[in-house]
Simulated scan of single mutants.
Amino acid sequence: MLQNPYTWVALAFLVFVGIVVKMAGKTILGGLDERAARIRQDLEQAQKLREDAQAALAQYQRKQRDALKEAEAIVTSAREEADRIRKEATAELTAVLKRREAQAMEKIAQAESQAVQQVRDLAVDIAMSATERLLVQTVDQSRSDALIEQAIADLPRKLN
């Protein structure tokens, strides 16, 4: 077996591999260890980033829910305010319409009163004119003097 060249080649190959492994093994294993450490750090960093992303997602979802609740509250408040304003406007319109109706009724009453007064004034004027014509035609001077004296005598009694 020692005389067989294949044995010597195999032995030389094993020695060579042993020396290479001994010399390069530390370098190769160190490189593999470094790479494993980097991969481990990358995984830890990725895990941390994932946890941060999940926390941020949860926070944004919470903010979104809060914003939706706030929006609903604003809409509800706006509806209530619109109802209140509508009721106030309706009440104010009703009050304004009642005031205008009262003013119109007052103006109608004033116009009616003025019309009645004008009719009375016209009736008095017509009656005075007719009376004057009648008196001028039917009363003579002596009768006129007697009527004037009687009116003067009745004046104090009528003024009280």
Results as ranks from 00 to 15, higher is better:
N160K: 14
E112P: 04
N160T: 12
A95I: 12
G30K: 02
A95Y: 13
R65T: 13
Q110A: 07
G25Y: 04
A115G: 04
L155V: 08
A24C: 15
L135G: 03
I19W: 06
V124L: 03
T7V: 14
A36K: 15
A12F: 03
A104C: 11
D154E: 14
L68D: 07
E101K: 11
R38S: 13
A55E: 09
I74A: 06
Q47I: 06
A91S: 13
Q45T: 11
D121C: 05
I74E: 12
V136L: 02
Q61N: 12
A46D: 11
E88C: 09
M1A: 15
D52N: 04
M128K: 14
A89S: 08
P5S: 01
I126A: 07
Q61A: 06
A82F: 05
E112S: 13
T76M: 08
A36Q: 15
R99M: 13
A104H: 08
A37R: 03
L49V: 13
D33Y: 11
A10R: 09
L135Y: 04
A46K: 02
E149L: 02
A46Q: 12
V21I: 12
I152W: 00
D33V: 04
E106P: 02
A109E: 14
L155S: 01
R62W: 01
A46T: 07
D125I: 05
L134R: 06
E112M: 10
A151M: 04
I85H: 04
R86M: 14
L68G: 02
Q137W: 11
A82L: 03
G25V: 00
M128W: 09
R50K: 10
L14G: 09
Q64A: 10
V15A: 01
E132M: 14
R62C: 02
T7E: 11
R99Q: 15
L147K: 07
L122F: 03
G25S: 12
T90Y: 13
A127E: 10
R79C: 10
E88A: 06
Q45L: 07
V17F: 09
M23V: 13
T27D: 10
I152G: 01
A130M: 13
L147W: 05
A36W: 04
S113Y: 13
A127H: 12
I28S: 01
L29G: 05
R35K: 12
